[in-house]
């Protein structure tokens, strides 16, 4: 009787952590499997899958960077995602501040406009952007990717930052005005120093979205010298068969910076995602 009760409370105490642990394991399993396989020799990739490896090799990573020059797509992705993030955060911050705080007509309409654009299907503007970039001789260039990326990055930053600026106490800015600082000076000396958490969150999310973007990169780059990481990975071809080892190694490389960012900033990311209720 007492024994059964103890067993039951123990079971109850452990049920939740165990269930949570199982859930986490299930979610992470595909990533584990990919990482594991990227370290498995090619000839054993499809032979008798085992959860615990017997032998790990770095062959695929070596091949990835020596034979395939995977540095190039990594560099391209960093440049494009970085430039997109900087541009949209700089322009987006001042725009968001105006939309969040200054009094002028048409603000609500503009905000709705920004949100509507963030929901544009990318495929709907591929054709004119292609023609436009071709006209401007920007196909297969960095600006030729950054410009299209602004279509989603700019609305994203504005939307997130408007939400953030609205949460700052307005009295701080009013105190700045009373102290004799103009709107811009208040923005610079009071609002911005207090906003770096929001701006950092926004930059992180913008970078993630840009790093992961695929359709535009696939449409507006022509050769391996400008391919971004996602495009490069999907276009891996072997001589006889799909080079799975290298693909998975590349997948791990593409995931690594993302994972680092998530590890470092998970709380901020969740806050940003749910406060702005951003698109997935």
């Amino acid at each position: 009787m007492t024994l059964g009760a103890t067993a039951r409370t123990t079971a109850r105490r452990w049920a939740r952590p165990v269930a949570t642990g199982l859930l986490v394991a299930a979610i992470l399993f595909p990533l584990y499997w990919a990482a594991l396989s990227s370290l498995t020799p090619e000839n054993r990739l499809f032979a008798a899958p085992a959860l615990v490896p017997r032998e790990l090799v770095l062959d695929h990573y070596r091949a990835l960077f020596r034979e395939r020059d995977f540095w190039t797509p990594v560099r391209n992705s960093l440049v494009v995602a970085g430039a997109t993030t900087v541009l949209s955060v700089v322009l987006g911050t001042v725009c968001a501040y105006a939309l969040a705080r200054l009094r002028f007509r048409g603000k609500a309409v503009m905000l709705a406009f920004v949100l509507a654009v963030s929901m544009f299907p990318q495929i709907s503007i591929v054709s004119p952007l292609y023609l436009l970039l071709r006209e401007l001789r920007l196909l297969n260039t960095y600006p030729g990717l950054v410009l299209p990326y602004l279509t989603f990055a700019m609305p994203l930053t504005i939307w997130l930052l408007v939400g953030f600026f609205r949460q700052l106490p307005a009295e701080l800015e009013e105190a700045g005005l009373m102290d004799g600082a103009g709107r811009l000076q208040t923005l610079w000396a009071i609002v911005l120093p207090l906003s770096w958490p929001g701006i950092a969150t926004t930059a992180i999310l913008t970078f993630l979205y840009s790093w992961n973007e695929f359709l535009f990169a696939l449409s507006f780059t022509l050769g391996p010298e400008r391919h971004t990481v996602p495009v490069a990975i999907t276009l891996f071809r072997g001589q006889y068969q799909v080079p799975w080892g290298q693909i998975l190694a590349a997948a791990v490389v593409a995931t690594a910076p993302v994972a680092a960012i998530v590890l470092a900033a998970q709380r901020r990311i969740v806050a940003g995602l749910t406060s702005g209720a951003v698109k997935g």
């Binding site: 106490p169 009373m178 004799g180 600082a181």
Partner: peptide
């Protein structure tokens, strides 16, 4: 407001 040369003390103090 920035050109009226008045000072205000807010209920929340609004210190920077």
């Amino acid at each position: 407001p920035q050109r009226r040369d008045l000072a205000m003390v807010f209920q929340s103090y609004a210190l920077y």
